[in-house]
Structure formats: structure tokens, C-alpha cells
Amino acid sequence: MRVAVAGSSGFIGTALVAGLESAGHDVLRLVRHRPAAPDEAQWDPEQGVVPLARMAGVEAVVHLGGINVGSRRWTRRFKKQLHHSRIRSTTVLASALTGLSTRPRVFVSASAMGFYGPDRGREVLDEESEAGDGFLARLCQDWEHAAAPARAADIAVCHPRFGLVIGPGGGALKPLLPLFRLGLGGHFGNGEQFWSPVSLHDVVRALRFMIEQHGCVGPYNVCCPAPVSNGEFSRVLAHELHRPRLLPVPGIGLQIALGEASSELLGSLRILPTRLTEAGFTFDHEDVREIIRAAL
């Protein structure tokens, strides 16, 4: 199968391209720089430029682009950049696909667990749960809506709502490892908030599932079947690193250091991958210990 991937140089995108190629798929990487390899094609979402000629015969398109929400403090300006980087690129790509003489069968356009809001306590959340409130919830709703042109053209649109992606060299584990390796790690706030992690390995497998399985459409929570408290996550991480788990990081300290973005660490989202498992997908890493071991 010929698959086009936007955001192919990111943490998830790099792993996805490798996974697709290892499975025998022909990958076209949509890049913003001048192409440096035969499998690259330049696009410019700001100018609305998409290389349609290079995309002839593409059966699936995956869009993973967008500025990292955790890359800096959430100032008003940065939140506008987060919104624009996702909505503009998704709208341009989804609209361009409708102009292909033979349209792709499926468009996998990223979303995130922020769809459900910053904090839902102990409520069990699946794809039928209502959207939450707050900046990320509104961002994710706009992000998913931006793919509307593709849906209107009868392209199957899938929205993987990523949980906390954990893998070697990046993702949610990256900022935690230095402290935990020094034996200085602890849980955040009271540690009772639910986290919904997923291994990078299973993220790639889930994206391939949406691409390869005919009939996939709509939102899919991409997180392991066993959400865990932040306290348990930190306990397992410290144990796997053979380090002690020290005092918790006070919630007020995170709020001062990170501002509004602290809600990502202190909020509770207990999310289940209901639609994926009902569709027949199985996770290789089903719980937090397996996820952390795979990353380490």
C-alpha cells in the first residue's frame, strides 16, 4: 500500500514510517524542507501547497503535524501557535485530498486525549464520552473538525486520540527520566490522578491497524487498556530503574513552574480504548509495567 505521512520527522512519525516500511508499505513523506531523499515531497500548509502529483496512487494519508504542546509555557501567543499549527495544516491537507483524481481510502488525522478535558476524576471515558472543557478540549475538537472536507468527500477519516505516548528517546517519559535516574523522582500532586499511557510500539501498531483494516472510521482512543494512577506510575518507574521514589512534587509547584500546562500532569483522565479493542486490535503492552519496560 502507498501511504503518505505528514509529520514524519517527529517522535511518532519517525517510528511510524519505520513500521510501515518494515511491513512492506511504500511511504511518501510530506516534508516542509526541500526534499533530500526520493521518498520525500515538499508541502507548505501556510501557503496551501500540497504536492498532488506526487500523491497519485496514495491509498492512505496520515497527518501527525503540530507544535508539541509541552515544549514551552502556555502563553496566549503560544496557545495561538498550537491551534494554528494543527488546524491550518489539517484543513489544507484534508481539502487537497478531495482534488485527487483517485482519492485515498482513509485519512488518519491525529487528535489527543485532551479532547476529554483536563480533569474528569475517576470517570471512565471512552469514545462515546462527551468532550471536556478547557483549552486542549477546544483545540482537539477544532482539530478533528478541520478534517471535515475529507469526510464530505467520502474519505474514511480516523482520529487517533493519543494518550501519554511512552517510548525510547522521547514522549511523556523523556522529561521524567533524568530525575528518576538520579533517585529524585516522585509522584505529582496527590498522585491519585489517572494517567492513560501507551507504548510507542502500540501507537505504531494502532495507526497501522487504522490504515490497513477496511472499515475503520471515527475517533479511537489510543491508550493501554489499564489506566493507572500517577502514584502507581511513579512507583513502577522507580522500581524499573532500581531507584527510590522520593517526596511528591507539590501541585502548587507545578502550577507555578508550568502555568496552565500543569493541568496535563495534575488532571485525571481514565480513558479506555474501547473502539480499538472492539474492532479486534490487541495491545502488546497492556499495562504500565510493560510500557515502561519497553521504553527502557
Rank of each mutant, 00 (worst) to 15 (best):
A206W: 04
H242T: 12
G170Y: 01
L265E: 01
E260W: 00
N190T: 14
E240K: 08
G171S: 05
L207F: 10
V222A: 12
I252D: 09
L265M: 08
P227R: 12
S229D: 05
V204S: 10
S229H: 13
G215N: 07
A257K: 09
M210W: 09
F162T: 02
L173T: 05
Q255F: 01
D154G: 07
G163I: 00
R151Q: 13
W195H: 14
Y220N: 12
A257V: 13
F209R: 12
G189Q: 05
R243S: 01
H201E: 15
L139D: 06
Q255Y: 08
L254G: 07
A172E: 01
S229V: 05
G267D: 06
A206R: 02
P168I: 06
H159F: 11
E264A: 14
A153N: 04
I166G: 02
V249T: 14
S196R: 04
K174V: 06
I155C: 02
D142S: 11
A226V: 15
L247G: 14
G215D: 02
S262N: 10
P244Y: 07
E240Y: 04
I256L: 15
H159P: 00
P178D: 12
C224D: 14
G183R: 03
C158K: 08
C223I: 01
S262M: 01
V165I: 06
L247D: 08
A172K: 01
R161A: 03
I211N: 04
P197W: 13
A257T: 07
H239W: 14
R205E: 13
E212A: 15
G183H: 04
L173P: 00
V228G: 09
F188C: 10
G218N: 08
F233V: 07
L258P: 00
H239C: 14
L266A: 08
S199C: 08
L246Y: 11
I155M: 00
G169F: 04
P219N: 11
L136P: 00
P175Y: 06
P175G: 12
Q213W: 12
A261C: 04
E264M: 14
L247S: 13
Y220C: 07
P227I: 09
N230F: 05
G189E: 04
Q141L: 07
Q141Y: 02
G134T: 02
A148T: 10
G251D: 03
A156H: 06
H145C: 08
S229T: 15
F188S: 09
G267L: 02
L184P: 02
I252P: 02
L258Q: 10
V157K: 06
F188A: 13
F180C: 05
C223H: 03
C158S: 10
L184F: 13
L266I: 10
P219G: 09
M210T: 08
V249A: 14
V198W: 00
G251Y: 11
A257N: 09
R243P: 00
A152N: 10
F162H: 05
D202Y: 06
A148I: 01
F180A: 09
N230Y: 04
R208H: 14
I256E: 06
R243W: 05
G163A: 04
S196C: 06
F209P: 02
V236R: 15
G185N: 06
L247N: 11
V217G: 11
